[in-house]
Each structure stands twice: as C-alpha cells, then as structure tokens.
Design a protein around this nucleic acid. Structure first.
Lengths: 223, 223
DNA sequence: TGATTTCCGTTGCACCTGCAACAAGGAGGC
DNA sequence: GCCTCCTTGTTGCAGGTGCAACGGAAATCA
C-alpha cells in the first residue's frame, strides 16, 4: 500500500528519517494518497487546506483567481514538491489558491492536526518531522526576503548589482548564475532586453565582467 | 526572576498558553533574559542564531552590512516582537544580520534546540509552542508572498490596483488602508508623488474613489 | 489663536525602462 | 550539411516614473 515511502525519503520534509520510520509515520498521521487526473483539482479555492500536500509524481500548477475571473499562475510543482503547507501552518480556513493537475498526478495528504499532535507511540522521528517543517518554512522565508530586498530597488542597475554582490558573497567572485537571461530578468522582475542593455553598460564601464551566465564583480583591470 | 512571563502571554509565540505554563516553559527550555544597552548588539553578524529572541522592552534595529560597508536597516522591532527565529529555524550557522539596540532594551533568548526537543515532563504546551512557531513563520510567509506579487508588477497602476483589489477582497468595498501616502508608496515600492499622480488619474477615470486613506473600487456611478 | 510640522497633490523635466522587432550565434535534430 | 529553435545582444520609440520643488490643507502643539 504505502509503496511510496521510498520516494519520500529524499524530500526535505522527511530528511533524517529512515524509510521504515517514514512508513510508520504515514500510518501514524493518517496519510492518504490520491490520484488527480489531468484537469482536476488537488485543492480548490475556498476549501480548507488542513493538510500538507506532497507530490509523488505528475505536474500541478498553483493559481489564483481574481475577482474579475482572471487566473494567475503562481507556480508549478512536480514530484517531491509540497503544497498547501504554508496555508495549513498559518491556519488559513479557506484556500485562496487552486492546485490544478496539468497531467495525471498522484499526491499524498498529511492531515496537519495529526502532524502537530505527536502520536502516543514513542516516535522520535515525529519531532524530526516538525523540525523539518520549520526549516522548510524558514528557508522559504529567507528566499522570499532576499528577493524582496532586490525588488525594493527601483532601477535595473541597483537590482542587478545587489543580486550580483549577494551571489558573490555566497559563491565567491567569478560565479555562475543559476539563470539564463530570461530567468534572471524574471527574477529581477525587469524586461529581458532592458536587462541586456544594462549589463552591456556595466560591462563597458568596467564595473563587471560577464560571459554567458558567469559574472565577476572585478573590473577589467583587477583581473 | 521570571517576572516577564505575564508580558509574554500576549505575544503570538505564546498564544494559548497560560501564564503559569509559560513560566514553566521558560525554565524548561532554559530561557535567558539579557539587558542590551543602547548601541550594543543583541546579535552580531557572523554569530550563530541558535535561539529565538523576544523583545521584552526597548527598541532594536535589524541591519545588514554590505561588503562595501554600507549598512541597510531592514526593520525595527520593539516590545513583543521576535527576532532571529527565521535564522534559527532555517539552521543558518552564521547570522547575516546585526540586531542593534537603539535604546536600552531587554530581550529573552530561547535556545532553539531545546524548543525542538520536548522536555521529558509532560508539558503539552510545548507542542503548542511549536504550533505557534509554525504559524508565525507561515503567516510571515504569506505576507511576503502577497507583497511579492505586487512588486512583480511593473507599473504603478498595476501595483495599486492589485493592492486595492486584494484589500477589497479582505475588508469589503469601501476600506481604510493602514497606510498614509508615504507608507503606501513604500509598500508598493514606488515614488510618493508618482503614486499620487496615478491615484489622481484613476480617480479622474472614475475607476476608483479616494478620500484620504479610504478607497473604493466602485466607480463614481456605482455609488 | 497662531506657529510649526506633517501630509498630500501638482508639475516640469530628464531618463530609465518596457515593448517590439531584428540579427547573430549556438545547440540540437534529421 | 541544413534546418529549426533557443538564447542573447541591439536599437528606436514612446511613455511611465523618479526626482525635486512648490503650495496648500490638515493636524499638532504651545
């Protein structure tokens, strides 16, 4: 039945928990696996997100519907990703988002209340689950915060330079960005061509060096 | 000694826990209260944020120092606010930020590891503490996400309209914004005068109605 | 009441940036 | 090789926006 325990072993939520412990945990919290056909919803706006969702396989998109009926896709998730965990933890009674399967998918739902209330059994890994959960939320928090600092800047140059200096701090000086130009432009929330233009200017001024997605803050002279 | 338990009762981290339980909890996790003089640091960049900080009284500012030495103030916190909780939960070994007291302050530090490992005593409220913690992180997450959606928009008009429609969804139609113009401009990350200009245009077009910080999406005709 | 400060709207101006279109180079498929 | 698709750089243009400055209205306070 719970043949999906092995697959879960690698995702952040279950890090540090052995396969057999995961299996025990799943029955302990009353995990339920469901299949979601393409075009169907794993979670509908308005429903209570009282569980943590995990994608076993497939592809789903998280979207929000405006009052005007416009649908905005917030993100896409695949195997190993979680969903609804923030809503569940925040205790939001009605989901503001939809989770729609764009292909045949299978997801597990862990009832949030039973994640919280540690079972009577002496399952120490239950504590680990909570710890992992806190870690996931906190790291997502830091990620959001980091991008927000960038989006607070008003010019492309400021956003780019802040991004570059942050990355340089973390990865050392010549560093490889995990984006192509399009991705970087999206991350900085600016137009791609305008970004290219600004990169060109900075390069010409000798402030940065660029080759494909490898950046260096050392000017030409500095080598 | 732990005369500060009553003050803690009202902050989100301890919601649903009685005063006496809080006192027990504090000794249980080994909470330590420290006084921080004006100009001193409660947390220095590079140090291990292995605790959750709570401000009992006073005022502190969280700042980040660039490689160039420029200091950027990220936020200010006061009585009842928490700090370092995200870093602790994320397991960040070295704090990227400073927490500086701008006036004589007193803070409590709860060792994170001991928050996680529930004490041997049957303290059920320990679970509540974890639940509260998850709630805090998750809500902060949603707050960040919400603003991020706004900052993703490229024009003032789009940002403002998105903000207004979100607020209208939550508060009903004529709603009072918790900002003055300056604050709203900061939240939307745009220039104040440019925001005023755009508000003027929208009003003239009949798309919105505004009086001070009360907004309505119903056009003039709609009443 | 009068003075001071804060908040808000307005405007002129420069310029940054989004947008669209195009070209060059590279990667991969047949 | 040849073709196609993807990525990146470039450019003209229009318009949105930051910036600075000013003036009036409202609020706070003595």
């Amino acid at each position: 039945m719970q043949t999906y325990a092995p697959a879960l072993q690698r995702i952040p939520l279950f890090q540090g928990i052995t396969e057999s412990e995961i299996a025990a945990l799943l029955t302990c919290v009353g995990a339920a696996a469901v299949t979601v056909a393409k075009g169907e919803f794993a979670l509908i706006a308005g429903d209570a997100p009282d569980y943590v969702g995990i994608v076993l396989h497939g592809q789903l998109e998280i979207s929000r519907v405006d009052a005007d009926g416009n649908r905005a896709i917030l993100s896409k998730i695949g195997a190993g990703d979680c969903f609804a965990e923030t809503l569940a933890c925040a205790g939001i009674p009605h989901s503001p988002v939809n989770v729609l399967a764009t292909e045949l998918s299978r997801v597990v739902k862990l009832p949030y209340q039973r994640i919280l209330t540690s079972c009577g059994n002496a399952c120490a890994f239950h504590g680990r689950l909570l710890s992992n959960m806190l870690g996931i939320l906190a790291r997502k928090n830091l990620t959001l915060q980091q991008r927000m600092e960038i989006l607070d800047k008003k010019t492309i140059r400021e956003r780019l330079m802040l991004y570059l200096s942050r990355q340089t701090e973390q990865q050392g000086d010549p560093f490889r960005a995990p984006f192509d130009r399009n991705g970087l432009a999206e991350y900085l929330a600016v137009d791609r061509s305008a970004l290219s233009r600004e990169i060109g200017r900075l390069r010409e001024e000798g402030a940065i060096r660029v080759e494909r997605n490898v950046f260096s803050l050392r000017g030409k002279a500095g080598q």
